[in-house]
Amino acid sequence: MTRTLDPANRTAPASVGLVWRIIPPGLYGGRASTLVERSALVNRRGWFVLVGGAFEPILFLWSLGLGFGQFVASVAGPDGQPVSYAAFVAPALLAASAMNGAVYDATFNVFFKFKYAKLYDAMLATPMGPLDIAMGEIAWALLRGGLYSAGFLAVMLGMGLIASPWALLALPAALLVAFAFGAVGMAATTFMRSWQDFDLVQLAVLPMFLFSTTFFPLSVYPGWLQAVVTWTPLYHAIELMRGLTLGVVGWGMLGHVVYFAVLAAVGTVVAARRLGSLLLD
C-alpha cells in the first residue's frame, strides 16, 4: 500500500515514528468500549447462555471429585509434595477453560461477524478503527471469561480445593491468559479463508488441553517430550494457576506473566493490523 504522505509528516520524531509504524493513525479511534456495549446489548436477552457457560467447568470439577479422584489418591504437586488429584486438576481446568473460552470467542465469533455479518465494515465507516474492534472484541471475551473464572474459583473454594490466599491472584491471572489466547486467536482468524480452516484451531487447542499437564504431571513424559510440553502456552498457564491455588509461589512465576503479556501485545497488534489491511484495502 503506497500512500502519498505529506513531507511534513515524514519527519516525525523518531520515538513517535516507532509508535506510528506499529499503530498507524486511523487504526485507533479510542472507542473500543462501545463495542463492549454492543456485545452487552446483544447478550442482554441471552443471559441464560452466558450463565450456562459456567456450568461446564463445574461439571468437570464434580466429576473429578466423584470419579477420577477415586482412582488416584494423590499426585506430585508443583513443589513435589503430594496433593489430592482434584486439587491438582482443578487449577489446570481453570486455565484450560480460560483458553477455550477466549479462543472460541476470538475465532468462531469473530470470523462470523467479519466474513458473513459484515459487522466490522459498518463500524469502520465511523471514527472507529481496526484496533478499536480488536480491543473491543477481546475486552468482551475477557469480561465473559472473568465471570466464568470467578464462578469456577468460588466452586473450587466450596470444594476445599484452594490452599492459599494467593488464589485471589488466580482471577487476574486467568484474565491475562484469556487475553493472550484471545489476541493470538483473533490474529489467526484474520488468516482463515473458510470454516474448513477451523479444524486447525481444534488441532492446536485439543492436544494442548489434553497433554499440557492438565490431567497428569510432567514426569509422565520421557525427557525430550517434557521439553516439548513446557513450550506450549497452556503449560505456562497451568503452572501459574497451580502455583497460585496451591500456594506454591516464587519469583519464577513472573516469567509466565511476561510470556502472556508479550503474547497478548503481539496478538492484538497483529490482529488490528491484519483487520486493517483486510477491511481497509
Binding site: 482412582f71 488416584v72 488429584y85 470454516w195 479444524d199 481444534q202 485439543l206 489434553l210 490431567f215 509422565v220
Partner: peptide
C-alpha cells in the same frame, strides 16, 4: 470436505484415549 471433519471424528477420540487411558492411567493407584 472430509478434511474438515477428520480432526473431530478420528483424531480427537484418539487423543482422548492416549491422554486419559495412558497419561491419566499411569497415575491410577487403585
Amino acid at each position: 470436505n472430509w478434511r474438515a471433519t477428520a480432526v473431530s471424528s478420528f483424531l480427537s477420540p484418539l487423543l482422548f484415549l492416549v491422554a486419559l487411558g495412558l497419561g491419566f492411567g499411569s497415575q491410577v493407584q487403585s
